[in-house]
Design a protein around this nucleic acid. Structure first.
Lengths: 249, 249
DNA sequence: CGACCGATTGACTATTTTCAAGTGGTGTGG
DNA sequence: CCACACCACTTGAAAATAGTCAATCGGTCG
């Protein structure tokens, strides 16, 4: 079960510089955050932080550690992953528009989040231009990213979706923890999603995902080893995936 | 070509009560809006207000009259409609996150928009809690709507997408101008998109759209007459479209 | 009238899903 | 330590779904 660990301490927060408080000068932080009611909460893999249908949105959250998937689902059980959150991401702010949660947030791994009541966030936005700007920017970036996914889902074929997904993963400068260079100087990227989750993100079945990955391994475009992948031939991947010049952008 | 008509006058604005200024008390409006630089601009059908690749976002817009489609496209020409805007909608605010436009806005019909420099919008948000709240709410609603579309595009089959699209159209309480009751007391809904645009919204080809519409006409589920449709049998539509209980939500 | 454009329809093809069987790794209990 | 179950993933064959190509229809406009 989820577990409340302690009150959050911004100054020592591991994701302070990726959070909505990153732009607040250190000397003002203590003052700005005073009498707000943050809690650090941990969740085990598979547990949900909130649920699309059941919960009204009274708190926003900042992800401190781990990965979270945001999903929506149909009554018959089909699931769409809307986005995957990484350290520093803000989520669960629907209440700012007086709406209940529009989606479900589930821990993909062990997670640590910082809960902030929306009333406090509203106050903070008034008190600090930095928080206001940062919140708005994140919202707009969420929107842009979701629009980009619309194009992926609506306009691309399976192989194109998958190729773009892999190429984006490998180019992501967002989360340095996802990257590592092994001793032979090759760039591996951790693949935090199962086949079925990749399918659920891209609107494909697990079998379709598996088939293209297998095919690309046979062709030598990619290598995989325990939840990490390596792109050996990005151009090959692009060409095989995109009959036309359709994979850019 | 587009044509600058005049400076906007909020008090006499036809969409004042649907705009981000709707919550400002009338007596304060004059004062609040003083020394801001709005322009009312008209666009002919097919003209774009701004373009995904070319334009940096320096102004936001409010749609006063007509319909606008927001689209994204792939280099090879495939197009995805992201959303369709109606009177009162705010768009083009990417610049608030220091980003250039992420999509293209094109007039679906003759349009009239009110342009507001983002610097002014930023000021207005500071000056007025109502504008701040309204802007934030709209952003969040855009995000929610786009997430809903992700589920449509990623998880549903063609017939389900189309049925949901028609049912949503007919239930939309957003834009009363889209509705009218004809003299035989039947509810017609205007269908502002061509077959090809419906396809582009739902990730389908024009032929697929046409086939399902024809089929449903033959079955007596819907009727169509010059850009308006009427849903005769919503249950039939739901059942035929959704093998399982998948069309709710 | 004739050209044009959006929409429809049919026949065919390509793509993706579905169903089913099998593989391989991991962990548990006998 | 092995046997077994379990799970994620792979693979194949068949079926369903949607796309492509091409012909045609019907309305509108010059």
């Amino acid at each position: 079960m989820s577990h409340i660990k302690c009150k959050g301490h911004c100054l020592s927060c591991p994701v302070r510089h990726q959070s909505i408080f990153s732009e607040i000068p250190e000397e003002e932080l203590e003052e700005t955050i005073r009498d707000f009611h943050t809690s650090v909460i941990t969740y085990g893999e598979g547990e949900s932080i909130f649920h699309q249908h059941d919960d009204s949105s009274e708190s926003a959250y900042t992800l401190r550690k781990g990965l979270i998937k945001i999903t929506k689902s149909l009554p018959d059980g089909r699931v769409q992953i809307v986005r995957v959150l990484m350290a520093g991401d803000l989520f669960g702010f629907d209440g700012l528009a007086n709406e209940s949660y529009n989606h479900t947030a589930t821990a993909l791994t062990e997670c640590e989040v910082c809960r902030l009541p929306l009333a406090d966030l509203a106050q903070l936005r008034k008190r600090s231009n930095e928080v206001d700007h940062s919140t708005l920017s994140r919202l707009i970036k969420n929107l842009r990213q979701t629009e980009d996914m619309l194009l992926e889902l609506g306009a691309k074929k399976a192989s194109e979706k998958l190729a773009t997904f892999l190429l984006n993963l490998s180019q992501s400068d967002r989360n340095p923890t996802l990257h590592h260079i092994d001793n032979s100087n090759e760039e591996w990227v951790s693949l935090p999603l199962s086949r079925s989750e990749i399918g659920s993100l891209l609107g494909l079945t697990i079998e379709t995902v598996s088939r293209f990955f297998s095919q690309w391994k046979r062709k030598g475009f990619i290598k995989e080893s325990k939840r990490s992948i390596q792109i050996l031939d990005a151009d090959g991947l692009k060409k095989s995936a995109c009959s036309l010049g359709s994979c850019e952008n």
